Simulated assay, not measured.
Amino acid sequence: MASPNNPRERRPRTVFRRLDGILLLDKPQGLSSNQALQRVRHLFRAEKGGHTGSLDPLATGLLPVCFGEATKIAGGLLGARKAYETVARLGVVTDTDDADGQVLRERPVPPLTIDAIDAALKTFSGRIQQRPPIYSALKRGGEPLYLKARRGETIEMEPREVEVHAFDLLNAADLLDGQLENGASPNLRLHVECGSGTYVRSLVRDLGELLGCGAHVAQLRRLWVDPFREPRMWTLAALEELREQAGERVLDACLLPIEAGMTSWPEVRVNAAQAQRLGRGQGLRGPYPPRGLQVAILDEQGRGLGLGDVDAEGGLHPARLFRWAAFTGGHIDTPHCP
């Protein structure tokens, strides 16, 4: 018999269902990406779900969540270009390189000009070598580094190449007007556009060192992820309210179709007979462009069938196909946002 004092036992068990689509979640501060994923997965009752690139608990903003067959394209979205707005707090260094960590040291902030800040920011543009934070989800020996760091283990991080498309100053008002109170640390508001594997925390940390005072991320918000450049994001609160007031069918209308996440791949269209052949695991003779690349496979009506690989001779081979790829005349109902 369930104990009335245990809320977990009183909570009704979620009955999951097959659901396909993409949710553009506005992740709240304080939740890990996996915690946010599980919240919306239970809210939508989706059998299968995954997110396309972690956000730190401190961070807010766009976290694309893939349900069902959309998880088959999630890996490709992980490497997409992303944009952030961040607040860098100067003069304070933390062990996690953000405001959630313990302060390691504080230093005075030297007099800085806009020109000096811009010059420092430019050194981080392009392909650069970056040392990831030791408190990160990167794995070593099958274990996330943040677990090792929490145990006090010594971790040596090797620099790796990342690409930074933009690192720009948006605002430095409190640094320049001299109106800080009670010894507060000045802030820089920054815009970042970067490729896969780039840590904004590391950019801010290294910028602070270059400026001679150290720095950490005080705020971080992800603005967009390719191909969702102008996302209509949904907060957890809005989704929960919609579910309660309007029901599950209206909630499902918040999902984007899988095809919305496939626009970053070159497109190849096939007819029904070719789709059936691919669905049986067989390749198609080409030539299909572009050779040597992965492509999005669509049917003649523009419905996504999955991902394929084009070989050097132009032959098309199935890579990750959706469950309906081998069937013609069938219909998968993937709701769209209103």
Rank of each mutant, 00 (worst) to 15 (best):
S3G: 04
S3P: 10
N6D: 13
N6E: 07
R8Y: 11
R8G: 09
R13Q: 04
F16H: 00
F16Y: 00
G21E: 11
K27F: 03
Q29G: 13
N34P: 09
Q38D: 02
R39M: 07
H42I: 06
F44T: 05
K48N: 02
G53S: 08
P57Q: 00
G61E: 05
L62T: 01
P64L: 03
V65K: 02
C66K: 00
A70G: 07
I73K: 11
L77P: 12
G79Y: 15
A80M: 13
A83Y: 03
A88N: 07
L90H: 04
V93C: 03
V93Q: 05
D95Y: 09
D98V: 07
A99H: 03
D100Q: 09
G101W: 07
Q102W: 09
Q102C: 12
L112I: 00
D118W: 01
D118E: 14
L121G: 02
K122M: 14
K122T: 15
T123E: 12
T123R: 10
G126I: 05
Q129K: 13
A137S: 06
A137N: 09
L147S: 09
E153N: 05
T154K: 14
E156D: 10
E161V: 11
E163L: 11
H165S: 14
H165Q: 11
H165L: 10
D168S: 02
D177G: 05
L188N: 09
V192M: 04
V192Y: 07
T198D: 10
L203Q: 12
R205K: 13
E209H: 06
L211Q: 05
W224E: 07
W224C: 06
D226G: 06
D226C: 08
L239E: 08
E241Q: 02
R243F: 12
R243N: 10
C254A: 12
I258Q: 02
E259Y: 08
M262F: 09
V270E: 02
A272H: 09
Q274W: 14
Q274I: 14
Q276F: 15
L284S: 14
Y288E: 10
Y288N: 15
V295L: 03
A296D: 07
D299C: 08
G302N: 01
V310K: 10
E313R: 15
E313P: 15
A319I: 02
A326N: 11
T328F: 13
H331V: 14
I332C: 08
P335C: 11
H336S: 15
